[in-house]
Computed example of a mutant assay.
Amino acid sequence: MMSHTTSAGRELDPVAESVAVYSDHTGEYAAVHAPKMADRVERFAGSLPAPSLILDAGCGPGRDLARFRAYGHVARGVDLNPVFVTMANTHAPTSQCDLREVGTRFPAGTFDGVWASASLVHLDAAETVDVLGQFGALLRPDGKLYVCLKATGHTGWLDEPDGRRWYTVWDPDEFATAVTGAGFEVDRVDPGPYVEVWATRNG
């Protein structure tokens, strides 16, 4: 990943810089994305006995935290953006956390499920592989993982209507292989603009 240098000559972390952009449009972001992913949440929630403890890794404003609770699960959230953390805390306990350090925030084997919906898109490939390994450590044996990442376009900085962000684009097969290498059995791969991987932690 290439670093970005400010006018003052200070290098910024592309992940932190990308996540910070959301702060200027949190209400709009929450409204636009509110109806999305409901079917995936239902499928993931149904794959675990209720109540299970689910980590929403990169929870944004907390949409899916509320959904998991409605399905009878116990949800916990982490997000790097402080405005999102405040919003998400209205749905379930949420703390500010860089996902590249998520493995240091909870004891190993804490969670029954880890849900990472488009939350790793700003990490480079090596960082993503490392975080997948941290997810595996946080899950109990046979715990469930859902993760989706960008699979179309080009890796690099992207100017969007609401700001400039870094994205890493993955080949679906390569990403499924990375999940397997992190200690998971891949149960399902759904290709598309975002490749979606459903997996189970090896016992």
Rank of each mutant, 00 (worst) to 15 (best):
V102W: 05
P51M: 00
D173G: 08
T110L: 04
D79L: 08
E42K: 04
R165I: 12
A70E: 14
A16W: 09
V147D: 07
G62D: 11
A199E: 04
A8I: 09
P193S: 10
L53S: 09
T5W: 06
T177Y: 05
K150E: 13
N89T: 06
R63N: 13
G153I: 04
Y22L: 12
F68V: 00
A8L: 15
M1F: 10
R164S: 13
L149E: 06
P14T: 07
L65T: 12
P35A: 11
L48K: 05
D98I: 01
G181S: 10
V74P: 01
V19S: 02
K144P: 03
E17A: 15
T168E: 09
V195D: 10
H73D: 02
H73Q: 03
T94R: 04
D162L: 12
A38M: 04
W115N: 08
G103I: 04
K36A: 10
A199Q: 05
D130W: 03
A31W: 14
V32H: 12
F106W: 13
D162S: 09
A45R: 00
W166S: 12
A125C: 00
V83T: 14
V15I: 15
R201T: 00
G133F: 01
P93A: 12
H154D: 14
S18L: 12
Y22E: 02
A125D: 09
S117H: 12
G9C: 02
D187E: 13
D130E: 06
Q96V: 06
T5K: 07
T177W: 02
Y194F: 12
A151G: 08
T155G: 09
V19I: 06
A75H: 08
V102M: 04
F111T: 13
R100Y: 03
V102C: 06
G46A: 08
G163P: 04
R43G: 01
H33T: 13
V179R: 06
